[in-house]
Design a protein around this nucleic acid. Structure first.
Lengths: 365, 365
DNA sequence: CTGTTAGCGCCTTCAA
DNA sequence: TTGAAGGCGCTAACAG
């Protein structure tokens, strides 16, 4: 690849560039124009397929660009056009495998749609989330995909609402925020888990969950309970272990739950963190999955490996969520959605994926 | 936040903007200047702490910027300054937990250093890697961090060498490529694993690995063998299972290895994919870890949960790798490293982290 | 169909 | 210490 020095570089650059000796000056549209023997406007039109340019010139321009290794300067283009073709991806915690899969899908879909993705991991810290938002504002990202932190901070809603670019919330809804969102039907997630266990013949089941104050966990529990009720059974509320905020707490709760004189035959873990704690507890107690205890969870644990055929889980449709998020954002960016027509809330359906962690309960004497 | 219309917006914008009705025009440096009652040059100097500006004006400018919610337009700044403060992060496969931890560290460190990170996941596809490189070139990323695909493609080396911005290779070295790199001492990794098993008293050990054609796997095996040799023992080459490219292949190899009449008392899995296959095999064969078989691997499996106290592993110093990568890149960007002084290869040391997957071998009758 | 030109927002030089 | 002006690379309007 040849990297010619730009037109007036000789005397102009010296005045402006700090990184002088290292700075390889990339070819500009001018260089392409000169080599192709046309004007810069023609080059722009030819390369962007905008406006009318004869096929012959188009070819000449393409050839010139090719030999020079020309790559249009994104900043200059953005400055002029007002669009950056950058999406900001603000993730609460990328180490959560569910978020990770979303990131992977979103990056791929956005890339195909011609967008670059700036990744911001806030690590559940409000301060970092705030800083990152400011950065994306400076970058003039065309849109922002938010997988927000749990933590609430002052003026949070105000800040998010007043974002000058389109934004979309994924996974978590923030009450009182008039922003588009893509979520799943968490009640349905709970119901699917319940129906599966009921079908297998489980009657005495436990739940290990986080705080019912959190919408997601509450909805999953509600759905789970509804499932039992619909099956003509009542969920034993004594067996619902609440307020486990960490994997360690879930572990302890599961130890307690599974050590009771009357043990449940199955456990519903409302998310992957909970599930991991439950599995550790089961392993420590020397119980076998699924012979001694069945486990169903929401979201997979990629490396869990405890049950040969993997874990039975209610799975969120990651790919669809990503698709919906990017598509909605594109609509907003293109102005295809009237800004004043209200927010668009997409709710997708999770589905059950069978694994080896559930089976019919053994009859106990 | 107030979003004033820029100076001549009334009649100028209409001619230039497509996204008319939606496009909220953000405040520019001009708006800040007008509100503060100074010139744009003064605003620039005041906000960037460059040049001499009286404290009083500095305060007035800061206040004006604050009330307007002014965020400097990154594209405009880049166009002028020649630097984007963007780093490109090209990952072969973000779903690999080791890479993920690197991504997480790099993003955090880069962010603190004032860089934004554009994430590109090539998913082990050369074509996507190529496209992504082109995009980062257009974006004029100040530097590129490469965690390259395994696949080799024509002109790959040429393309990577002729990159007009500084780049650094992480994890994998590409032979014949004159680019800075940060890797770990993979021979040491193997030796640490061997020494640990020897110390516990293991004499008959197996290895499950990928292809010895791949530098990383080969070095780890060499180091492992060296460790045994240094301990006055010979590694039984019959127990080295090579050419397992997938987790499934590793699983099959482990099943075969552990079903032999004379079984090893320990297994060294040369990476986390291999380890997962091995653990699945162990689980299926009904063996107990570490009672029946000890396992040591390179890189952790975050969710594995098979052994109560986690897996014993040789761990790569993710945080240090990330630090070194960003620091080296910054040096290159700043021109602190002479471009012609040769490449900088940083080699870091892995260390052993004890877990519950290894113990002394049981004596067998 | 092709070329000329203005200006996006910012920073820096130079003059006051 | 402050202000005026030019230009980074590109695209869109308009003239030829």
């Amino acid at each position: 690849m040849i990297l010619p020095v730009s037109s007036k570089a000789g005397y102009v650059k010296k005045r402006f560039l700090q990184r002088l000796d290292l700075a390889v000056t990339l070819p500009t549209i001018k260089d392409v124009a000169r080599l192709a023997g046309v004007s810069v406007a023609t080059v722009s039109k030819a390369l962007n397929a905008s406006g009318k340019v004869s096929d012959e010139l188009k070819a000449r321009v393409a050839a010139a660009a090719q030999t020079l290794g020309y790559a249009p300067h994104a900043s200059a283009r953005s400055l002029r056009s007002g669009a950056t073709r950058i999406l900001g991806l603000l993730v609460a915690d990328i180490t959560n495998p569910f978020f990770l899969r979303l990131v992977e899908s979103i990056e791929r879909i956005a890339s195909v749609a011609g967008y670059s993705v700036i990744l911001c991991n806030s690590g559940e810290s409000a301060e970092r989330e705030q800083r990152n938002l400011q950065m994306l504002l400076s970058q003039r990202a065309d849109g922002i995909i938010l997988m927000p932190t749990r933590e609430t901070w002052p003026n949070r809603l105000a800040t998010l609402s007043s974002l000058p670019m389109p934004a979309i919330l994924v996974d978590r809804m923030l009450d009182g925020l008039d922003v588009d969102s893509v979520t799943i039907d968490n009640r349905l997630a709970g119901r699917l888990a319940a129906e599966h266990l009921l079908e297998l013949g489980h009657r005495r089941v436990g739940v290990v969950m986080g705080s019912p104050e959190h919408q997601i966990a509450r909805h999953r529990l509600d759905g789970f309970r509804d499932g039992f009720t619909a099956g003509g059974l009542a969920l034993d509320e004594q067996m619902v272990c609440k307020n486990n905020f960490t994997e360690a707490a879930a572990h302890d709760a599961a130890i307690e739950l599974l050590s009771r004189p009357i043990r449940p035959t199955a456990v519903f873990a409302t998310n992957n963190h909970m599930a991991f704690g439950v599995f550790r507890a089961i392993s420590e107690l020397g119980l076998a999955v699924p012979q001694d205890i069945s486990v169903v969870t929401v979201d997979r644990l990629p490396w869990i490996g405890i049950a040969p055929a993997g874990v039975t889980a209610v799975v969120q449709p990651t790919e669809e969520i990503a698709q919906a998020a990017v598509a909605t954002l594109q609509d907003r960016i293109a102005g295809r959605v009237d800004a004043f027509a209200g927010i668009r809330s997409t709710v997708l359906e999770p589905h059950l994926e069978m694994g080896g962690s559930t089976s019919s309960p053994k009859e106990r004497s």
